[in-house]
Every structure is written in structure tokens, then in C-alpha cells.
Computed example of a mutant assay.
Amino acid sequence: MNFATFDLNLMRVLDAILREGSTVQAGKRLNMSQSAVSGALGRLRHSLGDELLVRHGNRLVPTDYARSIELPLREELDRIAAILAPPSTFDPATAEGTFRITASDFFAEMLMPPLADLLRKLAPGIRAQLVDLVPNSYIDSLETYHADLALIPDQSIPDWTSSQPLFYSSFVVIARRNHLHLTSAGVAPGNTVPIDLFCEIGQALFSPQGNFSAMGDAALAKVGRRRKVVMTLPVFSGVCRAVAESDLIALVPRQLAERVAPQMGLEIYRPPMPIDPPLIIAVWHRRSASNPLHRWMREKVIALMRLLNEGEQTAI
């Protein structure tokens, strides 16, 4: 390939096809006809000496070479876009775009309602999407779902990402009102559930992966005890609903429990063992760091989530 004569506009076409997996959808993204996109793909194949995309059913699947250049290409295009659109020109009131957040459904309750109100008032042309995390690999959600921001428990992150701390969240026990065993034992809402009773009552566990153990089990193991997990659910809403309609109990984040308890008929108790509150962080791809819309949305989400910080646990 002669780089001096290579048409760099073709790389925008390649990026669009890699994102969409279709020449038709890529054309819509670029405001080009399908035939123009197909023609550009043909020229790219000739110039780069690779098929780039091969048909698999109704989709175009990237070749190994195309996969190897997909992320570096997108980073360079985003960097050029950031250069050509300096932050001073960004006006949220007139901006249009979509911002995709990958997180558990905890954030459907705790983030999306205030974010919806904020966007309505300040940026009506910006759409927000909340999508599921990728089980076992939260960071991969940034690529798998082309997400702009991942809201996840604190962990080591790769060097192609950046992060900010958001909030600590302690755990509480939830049970339905007039819970048979808790009422019989005289345990009032707000008090600590005795450890023997806590370990005897069947429990529902939030686990997108379907695991039967989590942080609560590790905390119990430190004091030589085990609980009885009889059900796992991939969403917090399912955990809360199962508890509200049965004699199960569950450990859930305090902020979520306080939000949903009144409407779901739940009572809140203290767990019998200490559980270190996890730090929740925001993670994003460094390629988007200077994107004006991304930066504005990122700052708004971080500000909203830092309101969830807990007292002495907020030294972050």
C-alpha cells in the first residue's frame, strides 16, 4: 500500500462496518448508500491486501487482521474527532448523541432516574442506555457492548482504561414485613439478625454468574460460619422481589434497600458479621477521555453517584 496516495476516508468506512457488522447499517451511520459503502470496502480490500470482513449468515465477520486493527483505528479516529471538536464548542443543550453505561440493575434504581431528570433539563438531545455487565469480565463490557462507561466494584484495570472512585456501599439484610422467623425471634427492624438465625434462614443471592457464594459468605467464613443460599438471581430487582414474596432474606447494598423497601414492603436489618463495604468505581476507555460529550456525561454520572457515599467510608 502506498500511504501517500491512500484515501484515509476509507478508514471511517471500515470503522463503521466493524461497529455495525453490516454495510447497510454502516451506510446509515455515515449517511452513505449501501453501494457506496460496498465500493469503499472493495477498495480497502485491494489496498490492505486482506478480505477484512467475510459474510457469516446476515452479518459481516471481521478477519483476524481486521480485529487486530479495530481498536487502534477507533482510537485514532476518536482522537482526530476530539481535535476537530474542542471542548469549548460543546453545548449540552444542543448536543445530540447516545451514552451507553454498563452496570448492574442497582444503577437502574440509583442512577437512571436522577440522570433522566438531569438530561431532560440540561441535555434533551442526549440519550442514555444502561446495558448488562459481561459476566466474569466487567472491563470487557467496554468493548463487548461498545460501552462508554462501566460502573463496577473496584479492581485492577488495564492500562487502556481510566477510572474514578464513586462510593462505598455497606450491606444490609432485607426481609419482608412480619417475617415469620424474625418476628418469632423478636428481632425488630433496624436491629442485628442473630448469627444462628441468619445462617438458618434460606437466602436469595445476587449473582449474574449464578455463583452460590459472594462477599457475605467470605465474611461468614472468617467467623467460622456458613449461610443457606437457596436461590441465585442475576438482578437485584429479582432478589428484592423474591424476598418480598417469601420467607427468604438477602444481603443487598444499603442504598438500594432504603430506596425499594417502602414500595416493596421490606424491612431492613443489620447483618451479624462485619462486611467490608466495597468501593464502586467508574471505568472508561482512554480513547474517549477527550471526547466532549463523553467527558460531560462522565462528569455528570460521577457527580450523581458520589452522592451515594457513606459517612466515614467516603475518604476517597
Score class of each variant (00 low, 15 high):
Ser141Lys: 02
Arg259His: 14
Ser38Asp: 11
Arg100Pro: 09
Thr183Val: 06
Val131Asp: 01
Ile249Cys: 10
Asn136Arg: 07
Leu266Thr: 09
Ser207Lys: 03
Gly190His: 13
Arg298Met: 15
Phe236Pro: 02
Val260Gln: 04
Ala214Gln: 06
Thr161Arg: 00
Arg259Leu: 15
Met11Ala: 04
Glu143Thr: 14
Val13Trp: 00
Thr183Gln: 09
Gly311Val: 12
Asp105Val: 11
Arg67Asp: 00
Pro272Thr: 08
Gly311Tyr: 12
Gly125Cys: 10
Pro272Met: 11
Ile281Ala: 01
Ser137Pro: 00
Val131Lys: 02
Asp148Cys: 01
Arg100Gly: 10
Lys28Arg: 15
Leu233Tyr: 04
Ala4Tyr: 06
Arg67Ser: 06
Gln263Trp: 12
Ile302Arg: 01
Gln313Asp: 15
His46Arg: 00
Glu51Asp: 10
Ala242Lys: 04
Gly42Ser: 08
Gly57Tyr: 07
Thr63Pro: 05
Ala116Gln: 09
Gly27Met: 02
Val172Asp: 07
Val260Asn: 08
Ile281Ser: 05
His56Ile: 15
Asn211Trp: 05
Arg79Val: 07
Gly190Cys: 10
Arg100Cys: 15
Gly39Asn: 00
Ala315Asp: 10
His285Cys: 06
Asn9Pro: 01
Ser137Glu: 05
Ile101Trp: 08
Ala242Val: 13
Ala221Leu: 15
Val131Ile: 12
Gly311Ile: 08
Ala128Pro: 08
Trp284Phe: 14
Ser156Phe: 04
Ser38Ala: 13
Ser88Gly: 14
Pro274Gln: 11
Asn58Glu: 01
Arg259Tyr: 09
Pro92Lys: 14
Leu304Tyr: 08
Ser207Asp: 02
Ile80Gly: 01
Arg177Tyr: 01
Lys121Leu: 14
Leu8Glu: 02
Glu299Tyr: 02
Leu251Glu: 07
Asp148Leu: 09
Ala108Lys: 12
Leu151Met: 09
Ser213Phe: 10
Val260Gly: 12
Thr314Ser: 14
Leu122Gln: 11
Gly190Pro: 00
Ser156Cys: 00
Phe206Ser: 04
Leu14Ile: 00
Pro278Tyr: 09
Asp78Phe: 07
Ser68Phe: 02
Ile174Asn: 07
Ala4Asp: 01
Glu200His: 09
Leu130Glu: 05
Ile126Glu: 02
Val134Leu: 13
Leu220Ser: 01
Gly265Ser: 15
Ile80Asp: 01
His146Gly: 11
Ile139Asn: 03
Gly97Thr: 12
Asp140Val: 03
Ala242Pro: 05
Thr144Leu: 03
Ala36His: 03
Leu248Asn: 02
Phe206Thr: 04
Leu84Pro: 01
Asn31Met: 15
Arg100Trp: 01
